[in-house]
Simulated scan of single mutants.
Amino acid sequence: MTPEQVKLIQDSFSKVASISEQAAVIFYDRLFEIAPSVKAMFPSDMTEQRKKLMATLAVVVNGLSNLQSILPAASALATRHVSYGAKPEHYPVALLWTLEKGLGDAWTPEVAAAWTAAYGTLSGHMISEAYGKPQAAE
Rank of each mutant, 00 (worst) to 15 (best):
A112M: 11
M126I: 04
W107A: 05
V82T: 06
T79W: 08
M54R: 09
P3G: 11
K51V: 15
N62S: 14
Q135W: 06
E129N: 10
N66H: 14
S20G: 07
S128K: 15
W107L: 08
I26R: 04
A73F: 02
A106H: 09
S12H: 09
G132K: 06
I26W: 03
L31S: 09
H81D: 01
F27A: 05
G104Q: 04
A40L: 11
G85S: 12
K39C: 09
V25S: 14
L71W: 15
Q68H: 06
S128A: 08
S37M: 08
E89F: 14
Q68R: 12
G104D: 09
N62L: 00
A112L: 03
Y84F: 12
F32S: 09
M41E: 00
T108Q: 04
A86K: 07
G120N: 13
L99A: 01
F42C: 12
A17K: 12
T121S: 11
I34P: 00
L77V: 02
Q22N: 09
S14I: 01
A76I: 00
A113Y: 07
V93K: 08
L95M: 11
A112G: 07
T2A: 10
F42W: 03
G102P: 09
N62Q: 06
R80C: 03
T2E: 12
T47W: 07
K87L: 15
I9W: 06
A136R: 12
K52D: 05
K52V: 09
T2G: 11
M54L: 07
A55G: 13
A94Q: 11
T2H: 10
R50V: 02
V93S: 07
L122V: 15
A40E: 15
A113D: 14
A78C: 10
I26C: 03
K87G: 03
G102M: 12
E138K: 09
P134K: 09
N62T: 13
S12N: 05
Y119Q: 08
E33D: 10
L77E: 06
A35Y: 06
R80L: 12
G85H: 01
A137N: 11
N62C: 02
V93F: 06
D11K: 02
A130K: 00
E129H: 11
L57P: 04
H81Y: 05
Y131L: 04
T79S: 15
A58H: 00
Q5L: 05
